[in-house]
Design a protein around this nucleic acid. Structure first.
Length: 261
DNA sequence: ATGGCCTGTTACACAGGA
């Protein structure tokens, strides 16, 4: 079974890239982030026409996630609130960033973690609050599903080797010590990075800034991840980043990351 | 140090991204 995570930065703008990619790489489940469309505006037909089942959780202009599955998914859940109680969720479902479904006993959780804007900003505080709730949410999921695949755009590079530069990034959004610690705390419930099962090297990136010609210079970051529960981690056969779509005309700034188990 | 660039909006600059 193959599952791919891809932040497409607008599904309507990127539709041709996504459909072309899916036809060339017919993975079982494609997890999309930053669809940036209300559900009524999501191009569902393009996916049903090629035999996929879309499950969408969108909002106007910003955020938005979707699962595109070859086979129908079971128990699709939108947001934190389908699993957590209302009081603990608070306003953290106002932005549509979580969708989840079950395929062959695997619960697949697709996330678009908040960016955080700037260290110390309100959005940064929101990011940390969101990650704290995520830990509780995933702990609940893990207790129900020993096979858990948590993927998405995490907007955090855990290690310096996940960033193109050796310069200290302690004061940079996506790599500040507090963000890294918040993500490590989430993973402490029993999740491991699928890509790190296969390589310890740096230099594997999933995102390149639109500015500064960064793809050509390969000044990227690895911020899109697949985290697996122990049972699934043991089964994992590969974890690959496809840089090809990043080189197309009008690309997303992120590229697909696929795990196979 | 700053801003570079891209997307969606009811826009003709802005917010948000990372």
């Amino acid at each position: 079974m193959k599952v791919t995570s891809w932040n497409v930065n607008s599904i309507r703008t990127r539709l041709d890239h996504v459909i072309d990619w899916l036809q060339a790489n017919p993975v079982d489940v494609l997890c999309l982030q930053e669809t940036k469309a209300m559900d009524a505006d999501f191009p569902e037909k393009a996916f049903t026409d090629i035999g996929y089942h879309p499950y969408i959780y969108g909002q106007k202009s910003y955020n938005g996630v979707a699962l595109i599955s070859k086979a129908p998914l079971d128990d699709v859940q939108m947001g934190f609130a389908d699993v957590m109680n209302t009081e603990s969720v608070g306003n953290l479902d106002d932005q549509k960033r979580v969708i989840s479904g079950v395929l062959d006993d695997v619960r697949i959780v697709n996330l678009y973690v908040p960016n955080g804007s700037a260290i110390g900003s309100d959005k940064y505080i929101y990011k940390l609050s969101w990650l704290a709730l995520l830990k509780q949410y995933l702990a609940a999921q893990l207790s129900l599903h020993p096979k858990l695949n948590v993927c998405g755009d995490f907007n955090i590079a855990l290690e310096n080797k996940d960033i193109y530069t050796d310069k200290s990034r302690d004061k940079h959004i996506m790599s500040s010590p507090i963000e890294r610690e918040a993500l490590r705390d989430v993973l402490s419930i029993g999740l491991a990075d699928a890509c790190r099962k296969f390589t310890d090297e740096g230099g594997h990136f999933s995102w390149w800034d639109y500015r500064t010609d960064s793809f050509a210079r390969n000044t990227g970051w690895r911020i899109d991840h697949h985290y697996l529960s122990p049972t699934l981690y043991e089964q994992a056969k590969s974890c690959t980043i496809d840089t090809h779509p990043r080189g197309l005309e009008r690309p997303s700034d992120h590229t697909p990351v696929t795990v196979e188990y």
